[in-house]
């Protein structure tokens, strides 16, 4: 678990710092982390808030990024069958890329009873939650004192690069990423930042097409 935590600390610090650098207050940064608790979506929303994008575009972009959680939800659902609704709601709130990766590996290896599966999940997910909230809070309250000359706003695309590169595993992923990137630059003049969701949608279609042609 230590290497995963080491990865989310700088990510969380940047989410906190970025909230302040786009003009929000540290309390906004902390509140956003508690309400949303999804790093990539938080940073995307902050980047768009900084660019004065309209409400709907910010919300839609964040939710499109988080649509991947449906995939994790489907993958974990059979393992949590039988837990109370309250517990299910709490573990859903705590669901992240890291908590998913961590627990699904364990469930694939051992056939444990539901109580053991739940304690394993909550142990990992709560550790991740506390680390993330602490890191964003520290970032948000330090953010105001960081000089602009450090260009720390550049850390947002850097985090995206760190998440993007491992997400490209084959040609279909590459096609999705390449088409979306080029189109996003070509459509940058569109009003309301609409180029971003459009480019992403066409990229997804490109990925599906390449995968279908190859199989």
């Amino acid at each position: 678990m230590a290497p995963i935590l080491l990865g989310i600390v700088p990510f969380g610090l940047i989410a906190g710092i970025s909230a302040v650098s786009v003009g929000l207050t540290p309390v906004h940064g902390v509140g956003m982390s508690i309400l949303v608790f999804a790093g990539a979506a938080q940073l995307a929303a902050l980047q768009l808030i900084g660019g004065d994008a309209p409400f709907l575009v910010v919300a839609a972009t964040a939710l499109i990024i988080n649509a991947r959680f449906v995939m994790y939800s489907a993958s974990l659902a059979p393992h949590f069958h039988g837990a109370s609704t309250g517990r299910k709601a709490l573990l859903a709130y705590l669901l992240t890329d890291q908590a998913y990766a961590f627990s699904i590996r364990r469930y694939a290896e051992r056939g444990e009873p539901i109580s053991a599966r739940l304690s394993y999940y909550f142990g990992a997910a709560i550790t991740l939650w506390v680390t993330w909230q602490t890191a964003t809070a520290v970032g948000a309250f330090l953010g105001a004192s960081i000089p602009e000359a450090w260009s720390l706003d550049f850390a947002i695309p850097l985090v995206f690069i760190a998440l993007l590169v491992p997400a490209i595993r084959d040609r279909a992923d590459g096609a999705a990423a390449g088409v979306a990137a080029v189109l996003a630059v070509m459509l940058i003049g569109l009003p309301y930042n609409l180029g971003l969701p459009l480019a992403a949608a066409v990229g997804i279609v490109a990925g599906i097409t390449v995968e279908r042609v190859r199989s």
């Binding site: 990024i65 995939m71 940058i188």
Partner: peptide
Amino acid sequence: ERGLRFIPPAVLSALVLPAV
């Protein structure tokens, strides 16, 4: 499920390239 798989690469790269 197949479409969901392509969301991270597509959205992240559409965020990165215009920004840099």
